[in-house]
Amino acid sequence: MTDFLQLTLAGLSQGSVYALLAVGLIAVYTVRHVINIAQGDYAMLAGLGAIWMTAAGMPLMAAILIAILSVALVSVAVDRLILARVKNLTTLVSIILTLGVSTLLQSIMLLLWGPEAEGLPAFPGQNFSIGGVSIRSQDLWMLGALVVVGGAILLFYEKTRWGKALRACAEQPDAARIVGISPVMAAVIAFAIAGVAGAVAGVVSSPVALSIWSGGLLLGLKGFVAAVLGGLSSFRAAIVGALLLGMLEAYVSAYIASGLRDAVAFFILILVLIIRPSGLLIRSVPVRV
């Protein structure tokens, strides 16, 4: 039982990283109908950037803050300099373009920081155990990041007038312009939010999972699987799906074979697309704007 609980905790902490990436993907998709394959690379970029700054002598928290803000700017630049310049941008075209962005970012990270995986120093906190279950402080940081950042994004989109206005730009862009909602500003905000979510996922997981130039694509695809479980529209369902995905990976790795860990996400994706393409949503709930 202790081993099962230990695996559950590990799965929840890893699932929180997938959840943050999924939240970023949905934040963009609900505004621009863009699927950003580079979302996972934002996590690696933030992690490696923060590692570089701490190695140069910058305090840990200052390096993390600068890395998060820098990645948010990169995310906005990807939209303004690439995606926004494409006429009739479809979801398929966005996948192809952001796959190219992902390759570009990976090449830049490889040139700047080399091929070796590195990790940030552990965040402040003490490890402890409850009932034989070892709890690392970094696991709590990862879960806490989801609660704070993921929860803030969810509340922003679902409870505030600004968040509802962003969704209105995707559903009725012409009507949004008439009532004074700028689709350009909506896109900037959405991509900045996605960049922040991806960067936070990267820095909180770096002390445990390490950061490496090539790790973003697989990480982003797992976030995408979680977003699909949310029907690419529900933050809550995507977060639940991401946590379940993290736990299933931990169980499969421990009880079946560690080599099958990464296959779990794609097996789930296939099942969902065949059985329930709408994701984990029980029913669709229209958003009033």
Rank of each mutant, 00 (worst) to 15 (best):
L112E: 13
I274E: 08
I37F: 04
G15R: 00
I51L: 12
V184C: 14
A63Q: 07
D3P: 10
S205L: 05
L232Q: 09
Q6K: 08
S211M: 10
A165N: 03
G114M: 03
F123Q: 07
V184T: 15
G195I: 07
L155F: 08
L21W: 04
A84P: 11
R276T: 00
M58I: 15
T98Y: 11
G231Y: 03
N36F: 13
A263W: 13
A56W: 03
L97E: 05
A194Q: 13
Q138Y: 11
V147T: 02
I108H: 04
R161L: 12
A38W: 11
A46R: 08
G100D: 11
L210P: 10
G114C: 02
A186N: 01
A176T: 01
L146S: 01
S137H: 06
C169V: 00
A242Q: 04
V101N: 11
G279L: 01
R85I: 07
Q39I: 08
V71T: 04
G215N: 10
L229A: 10
V264W: 09
L273M: 06
L92I: 15
V23T: 05
F123H: 13
I275P: 05
R177C: 02
K164S: 05
L248I: 05
G150W: 06
L269S: 08
G223I: 00
V179E: 10
L146G: 02
G230W: 08
A145G: 06
V208L: 11
V93H: 14
S16M: 03
T8K: 12
A27W: 09
P173W: 02
V287A: 12
M109I: 04
L243P: 01
E171C: 12
W113F: 09
L104N: 13
I212Y: 14
G230T: 02
L221M: 09
L229Y: 12
A242L: 08
P277L: 10
A43K: 03
L5H: 09
V71H: 02
L221H: 08
S129W: 06
R32L: 15
I68L: 08
I282D: 11
G40F: 00
R288E: 10
P277E: 09
T8R: 12
I66L: 14
R32P: 10
F266D: 02
G132L: 13
G49C: 12
G230L: 07
L99F: 14
I178L: 15
R136C: 06
V149F: 03
L229G: 10
V148K: 11
M44K: 06
V31D: 01
A194P: 14
A254I: 09
S129K: 07
F266R: 05
L20S: 02
